[in-house]
Computed example of a mutant assay.
Amino acid sequence: MKILMTTDTLGGVWSYCMSLCAALKPHGVHVVLATMGRALSLEQRKQVDQLDNVDVHESTWRLCWMEEPWHDVARAGDWLLSLARRYRPDIIQLNDLGHGDLAWPAPVVMVGHSCVLSWWDAVKKQSAPRAWHEYRERVSASLKNADLIVAPTHAMSKALAHHYGPFNRLYPAPSVIYNGSNFPALADSPTDKFNQAEPLIFAAGRLWDEAKNIAALSSIAADVPWPVYVAGEVDQPNGKGKAPDNLHCLGFLHNTEMARWLARASIYIAPARYEPFGLAILEAARAGCALVLGDIESLREVWGEAAEYVDPDNPAELRRVVNQLIDDPQRRQQLSALAWDTAQSYFAEQMANDYIKAYEALVNPAVFTRPRSVASLSGMPI
């Protein structure tokens, strides 16, 4: 099977695609990977070079969630269609929301990793302003033309259906395929991790993104006895950005460095206001960190009882919970074990198996026939 897959190079979607492409290899899947957003970093080039089932095609077209993107979105669409004509894929998998309504020659799987409208709801506690009206219309048309819509959690599925649905009269909501990762290497045991971990707190994410809520960590860092280290880019895509106070900012970390910091950290904090899945949290759990997370629906769905939860808008609660964990090694060890155990529900191989089921249904002539407008599979259960 051959798949034309889009990705951006700016955040978690790239990590998701690397995990998925690697896990699809044993299934005989070849991926034509089309990148957008900005040029690949040296680290990203090394990652994709290790995947011999992937051909990468690079661009720097702006994505639909960026400022004034629509000229670039149109040019990117022409480029993507040219790749489809050249490679004749069996499946188109779009990991952005801007290109579903093109004249694709094959069934389209669109993955809603996040969206601007649900971001505004969660972060700003209000509807997106009129400036995002065109985004709403374009994304709605894009999603309605996809043959299968996938979300990484039920919470994100509901958000997409709320803002852009229904997509199909029989299946009005996207299907759910949980993300998975094999990075970093799973800690040998939570007990070993607990005995070897250092008295430090770690976090990761785009420091400029209000959804990640790194500012909450900055506001309490002076009031906790352990140092707080944060990995992530300070600058926004437009070049603006300022490092938060009271934190040890490490900047962008390559995988080897990230794994080293996760192995050292006792507590991982993600006081997110908006996080449709949270691959960085999964990586921390695989390393055996105790988790302190924002009390939002998606994170409760993924982690259940394996974390402490705090109101993202209540720094005093975050300070209290963190200090209690520092003072209670038994509870830290319990949370470490629960996170490590729960992380094993989210292996990359399981994610790939679920996508293979979806792909095979779409390429089955008995299920999928032309034209797409007649045989839409949006929201098809898998």
Rank of each mutant, 00 (worst) to 15 (best):
V54Q: 07
D55R: 08
H27L: 12
T60H: 04
H27Y: 13
D52Q: 12
L81V: 11
S59L: 01
Q50E: 09
E67L: 07
R38K: 14
H30P: 06
D72E: 11
W65L: 06
D90G: 10
W65P: 03
D90H: 12
R75A: 15
R45P: 04
D52W: 00
E58G: 04
L51D: 10
Q44E: 13
W70Y: 15
V31T: 09
A39F: 05
H27F: 14
H57T: 03
D78N: 13
Y87T: 05
L80M: 08
L40T: 10
W79Q: 01
G77L: 06
M66N: 10
L40E: 14
V31E: 00
G37P: 04
A84N: 04
L80A: 02
T60C: 08
P89T: 01
Q47V: 02
S41N: 12
C64Q: 11
H57N: 09
D55K: 11
H30N: 13
Y87I: 06
R85G: 12
W79P: 03
E58N: 10
M66S: 13
C64T: 13
W61G: 02
V32N: 00
H27C: 10
L80S: 00
L80R: 00
L51S: 11
H71F: 02
L81F: 09
D78K: 12
L42V: 14
D55W: 09
P89D: 04
A74K: 12
R85T: 15
